[in-house]
Nucleic acid binder design. Structure first.
Lengths: 335, 335
DNA sequence: TTGAAAGCGCTACCAA
DNA sequence: TTGGTAGCGCTTTCAA
């Protein structure tokens, strides 16, 4: 059986309170008493039981990290950053992957609440509105990351998707591209919607005729072949554009695969641009032009904000929009 | 203040035990009593407190997942698989990243023990021998993943690094490559050591003279530039080999970067092979030849084994070695 | 069919 | 400088 504080107390010939106090250094204890207690702890291989402690002090030093899609490298990076920073604050992180499923999201959030976590980092599916609002009403510290939900009063860390998309599109247009299609998935997510709107507004600004560009909707396929098939059917009787500007992170590589399979020269015939980041892009061909999200930085900031709330009770709802960078490898297009 | 079971009991006009029993369905309760209780639960937004529950029942339905390096995509995959599978069993996972630091590893393990987790999945730094042995003596379910530690009696899920390396080397030799260098880091890890030995044994078997190949030791640099610099100094006054067979996962892309920067044609002048997996390899140039580890499968199996121990008290120490696949894009070498 | 109460391991208040 | 003890919220045995 595992040793408890009582065992330690008995062995050291002191009371449990004394043991507790030497462990937590929360009041003065005589030198030799301290030593006796410490010896007993060693002898018994005593490990404090955090459940009991947390139950008492109402704090678990644990946060929940709920992301929407671990198949997306984007979120893996976020997780890494969050774990890293949380650890610096002395917090553990419980990892939850909703896989874009609102039901799973709800289930996970509920579980986390029951586990009495001290705060939540959430990349929401953007669906459980009332449930999440209830959580916020509880005053449990929560910060949104990567995606926000309209009219939810809490912190948010992300990027300005609208401007990023709009600016990148303009840059692309400046390079002479005129026929640009935008594949996307999950428009219900605000950032995706922002990207689409930014794209369209830029086209409008440049007076590009509507028929020059198409939006292509994708389901949130888990399977790469399905995604590729969707591309194939879409472009069956339609000419390929000069550029595919991919608005859904997981679609980008599928787009490359589709073009590659079809023997299309990237970027000469059809170029590919997207959102997210692509490590070592420069060393491999074709180069993808990417609107790079500072994912790691996002994770750091999100935890910082969360800790402000948990540890210092900050109430203010901050929105942090990090700048993106358009890593552009597109050749000029001469028409 | 949050509602407790007591509040629910009072509101429903029953005792706490009844409330407990309707929640857990652990003994018969009258239809209308049940309803009254459920209504009270709804009204009060009652959420059971898992800390108290866990303290009582001595089970947290939570496992710890301790990996050695989240900067390594390899482990990100593992984590994804573990979280996924653990969730299927109704368990949460606490994510811990030791970053190859034994001190951090020890700290994390200790924390997990204190949190009373039900089991541990560990990709060890292979350093805290006595500490980990103590844990095993406790009989706490633990399974090693990806890396094993000699003489530790517990489950292990990984691949047969020695044979994988040896077989791949032979295949490479069969293709006509003769001058092959092997960069590596962290030889203290058994899988890395196995790779090196497999490589050397294959060379010996084929009677390749010693001076034809070099082992290049790397520190476990976090910084890509440092890694590249190491390559540069090493090959300053030495000819490049026909192939770099990279034994350290994180080194592979750095090797490509180094060669690319130097203007070397991959794979014609110097080819690159490595261990791990590289998504979408086929769509990008240069193609890397990889001994592919079934990372996701590893995660699944590890959790399965862990659950066998946690839920069914299995004691047997199983070792699962998954097969690797050599995805080889190497051109034949004519000498 | 239900309730009372002990106790999980710990913290912290009140006394001494 | 230390100890006794109530109580955190829950489960479960025993009794009714």
């Amino acid at each position: 059986m595992k040793a408890t504080m009582k065992d330690v107390a008995r062995r050291a010939g002191v009371s449990v309170s004394t043991v507790s106090h030497v462990i937590n250094q929360t009041r003065f204890v005589n030198g030799d008493t301290t030593e006796r207690v410490q010896k007993a702890i060693k002898d018994l291989h005593y490990q404090p039981n955090d459940l009991a402690r947390s139950l008492r002090v109402r704090s678990t030093k644990t946060i929940g990290m709920v992301v929407a899609d671990l198949n997306n490298d984007h979120f893996l990076e976020i997780i890494r950053a969050c774990e890293n920073n949380a650890n610096r604050y002395g917090y553990n992180t419980i990892l939850c992957n909703t896989q874009e499923d609102p039901k799973k999201e709800k289930m996970y959030l509920q579980l986390l609440l029951q586990k009495q976590i001290d705060g939540i980092i959430l990349a929401p599916t953007c669906q459980n509105r009332s449930f999440i609002r209830n959580i916020l009403d509880t005053n449990l510290p929560l910060v949104f990351i990567d995606r926000y939900m309209k009219d939810m009063e809490t912190c948010y860390v992300g990027v300005d998707s609208y401007s990023s998309s709009r600016d990148a599109t303009k840059r692309i247009l400046d390079l002479g591209y005129r026929r640009i299609d935008m594949p996307y998935a999950l428009r219900s997510l605000w950032p995706v919607d922002d990207r689409i709107r930014g794209f369209q507004d830029a086209l409008r600004e440049y007076g590009i005729p509507e028929e020059n560009s198409a939006l292509i909707e994708f389901e949130d396929y888990e399977d790469k072949t399905q995604t590729v098939e969707r591309f194939e059917t879409f472009y069956k009787d339609r000419p390929l554009p000069e550029l595919l500007f991919v608005a859904g992170n997981k679609l980008t590589l599928a787009a490359v695969h589709f073009l590659h399979k079809r023997g299309v020269d990237i970027p000469e015939e059809t170029a590919v641009a997207g959102f997210g980041s692509f490590k070592w892009n420069e060393d491999f061909t074709p180069h993808l032009s990417m609107v790079e999200t500072p994912v790691f930085e996002m994770g750091l900031q999100a935890v910082d904000l969360l800790m402000e709330r948990i540890e210092m009770g900050v109430q203010e709802n901050k929105t942090v929009l990090l700048p993106t960078k358009f890593a552009c490898y597109l050749p000029e297009k001469k028409n």
